[in-house]
Design a protein around this nucleic acid. Structure first.
Length: 554
RNA sequence: GGCGGCGUAGCUCAGUCGGUAAGAGCGCUCGACUCAUAAUCGAGAGGUCGGCAGUUCAAGUCUGCCCGCCGCUACCA
């Protein structure tokens, strides 16, 4: 799972790209009976946080304190079931990161080197490339940044700039020597390439991207920064004010979070089952912009550390787009998640997003599209199926599951389709094809609807109650099986259905098999599973207006 | 500019190693049904797979060029 910056509200892109896929996959594996540990947390040391803090005149910690709890509320509302959602600001994380640093040092993958960097005397600190502006030596553009010229596009070094100025204070920065730890990343070119090119079942765009990157030859990278905010290095030979670069430190959260979880459980060594047992599998659900860190840098760090499991898979998603542009709250594309949570039921929203997972391509998801998916697909096909069968059972059999008579060929076919659905969805989920999985589960519901059409229990009820009872019994079995198939995607309503049909869901997820709905059992109360979304529910004209508005804005 | 990627039915998307008549859902049309949240079921219409050229017995699928679009550019992807 990606670690979000605690800098602002999340939007559908975050949910569709990483958190919901992860939750669905985790629920599925739990249903299979596997032990699953799902962890993530807020990155509290990222540059965006200090930048935002500077802007607002706040302390970085205040930003974190504002957004981290908000994230937790999203997980609760959407039922994204983390075992632990922590932050990179914990003592455990600090300890793990510092130990990791020492391990790399001990293994010979860190060395010190001095370089010259611009220093702002007025602000009293070193300036990142982007904080230096000046005239481009290539095209003469006046507002070129230290890393790149926006006008001619050439990549620059801050020292190339003519007449450099600090973006912070406007003063002329001076070059100063600074010493840093460097990470011997170049040592991992071969092993990474070897590892990446032998991955099977990975999404092509992930492998291509990572291989392309490593193939070009990775250079050593600075491991530390001149910053007070962050995790200080655990050695003092460089003097004070040296922190570990946030990206290297953030990914180590995957190692620290399980340890924190284990400590809280009172079984401090329990994390090793996930990290040191070679049989353990690890899946990193991230957006495609995070591929370098999860498919290249983090594996390289793991290799450098030794004794830890490399990622089993990095099923990175592409982007959820709005009006063709990547969702980004800061740029005003898409809406904050809270807006949707106020207007949609969690399972309905999960459905709409899952049907648009950008697994192999960017996927467009507008408000109108969400409404359409909920009303015309989820409510019409699945919600309605459950509702019609339950109400017929109520009407003809007083809500008691009827006793089936002799099964016809159609009945057998229907029952077979139930297990086929479960099997197919299982195969797709196993391959992390989550979007195809939910589509297959919905096809199962359509098969049940078609079965009802063929057998027309409302007609046979006039003449042959045994036949009617058999049909409804079969339909109830199909519904129960389908509820299981949908349970990773729609946990709340699936549980409702299963419980109404007499299945006790004991663990965190139902067992992955078609449950038997017993004859003679009285059905539990079960109203409509999902409310149809009325557009009037939005602020007047909001849906269309927003779609248009977003397009204009991009 | 560099790097990565995208352009397939009205809409959102699938199309594995190039090979049976190009697929799904929704929408639309027609028909059936009336148990059900005007839901469901069946049938059908609709695509020169962005354009041009090439490789091949055969290309949505490979190569080149062009057009349009998007993302990343984190102290070098």
């Amino acid at each position: 799972m990606a670690w979000p910056y605690a800098t602002g509200p999340l939007h559908l892109g975050h949910i569709g790209g990483a958190y919901l896929p992860s939750d669905i996959y985790a629920r599925f594996r739990r249903s299979l009976g596997d032990d699953v540990l799902m962890v993530s947390g807020s990155d509290v040391h990222g540059t965006p946080i200090t930048v935002k803090a500077d802007e607002l005149g706040w302390d970085p910690q205040e930003i974190v304190d504002k957004y981290h709890p908000e994230f937790l509320s999203y997980w609760r509302d959407l039922e994204i079931d983390f075992d632990l959602f922590t932050t990179t600001g914990t003592d455990t994380h600090k300890r793990v990161v510092q130990d990791f640093f020492l391990k790399l040092l001990e293994n010979g993958y860190l060395y010190t080197q001095t370089s010259e960097q611009y220093f702002d005397d007025e602000a009293g600190r070193f300036l990142p490339d982007r904080y230096v502006e000046g005239t481009c030596p290539h095209c003469g553009y006046v507002d070129a940044r230290g890393d790149q010229c926006d006008n001619c596009g050439k990549t620059l070094d801050p020292t190339d700039l003519i007449d450099p100025k600090s973006k912070l204070t406007g003063s002329t920065p001076v070059l100063r020597e600074t010493e840093h730890y460097y990470w011997k990343l170049s040592a991992f070119n071969e092993p990474l390439l070897e590892w990446l090119t032998t991955r099977e079942g990975w999404r092509p765009h992930v492998v291509n991207f990572a291989v392309g990157m490593v193939d070009g030859g990775l250079h050593d990278r600075a491991f530390t920064r001149d910053l007070d905010w962050g995790i200080p290095i655990p050695v003092d030979d460089l003097g004070p004010g040296k922190s570990i670069y946030v990206w290297w430190e953030a990914v180590m959260g995957y190692l620290s979070a399980p340890q924190e979880w284990a400590e809280k459980q009172g079984t401090p060594d329990a994390w090793k089952a996930w990290w040191e047992d070679p049989e353990a599998e690890s899946y990193y659900f991230v957006g495609k912009d995070n591929i370098p860190f999860h498919a290249v840098y983090w594996p390289a760090l793991i290799m450098g550390h030794g004794g830890l499991n490399l990622p089993t898979d990095v099923p990175a998603n592409q982007y959820v787009t709005f009006g063709g542009a990547k969702a980004s709250t800061s740029r005003g594309v898409g809406r904050p998640l809270g807006w949707y949570l106020d207007r949609f039921e969690p399972d309905s929203l999960r459905y709409a997003i899952a049907q648009a997972f950008p697994e192999s391509n960017d996927s467009e998801l507008t408000d109108g599209e969400i409404v359409r998916r909920i009303n015309d697909e989820l409510v019409a096909t699945w919600g309605n199926l459950v509702n019609r069968v339950v109400s017929m059972t109520n009407r003809y059999f007083d809500g008691v599951v009827p006793q089936p008579g002799v099964l016809s060929e159609a009945d057998d076919t229907a029952l077979a389709s139930r297990t086929a659905t479960l099997q197919d969805v299982s195969d797709l989920l196993g391959d992390v094809k989550l979007r195809a999985g939910i589509a297959r589960a919905m096809a199962g519901a359509q098969e049940a609807n078609a079965y009802l059409s063929d057998l027309a229990p409302w007609t046979t009820a006039k003449t042959d109650m045994e036949r009617t009872g058999t049909t409804l019994w079969v339909a109830l079995q199909m519904i129960a099986g389908n509820a299981v198939a949908l349970s990773p995607y729609l946990p709340r309503t699936s549980r409702k259905v299963l419980e109404a049909l007499g299945s006790q869901v004991t663990g965190r997820a139902p067992v992955w098999e078609a449950p038997e709905v017993s004859s003679g059992m009285k059905l539990g109360e079960l109203g409509p599973l999902f409310a149809k979304v009325e557009v009037a529910q939005f602020d007047v004209g909001q849906v269309d207006a927003t779609d248009a508005e977003i397009e204009v804005r991009t």
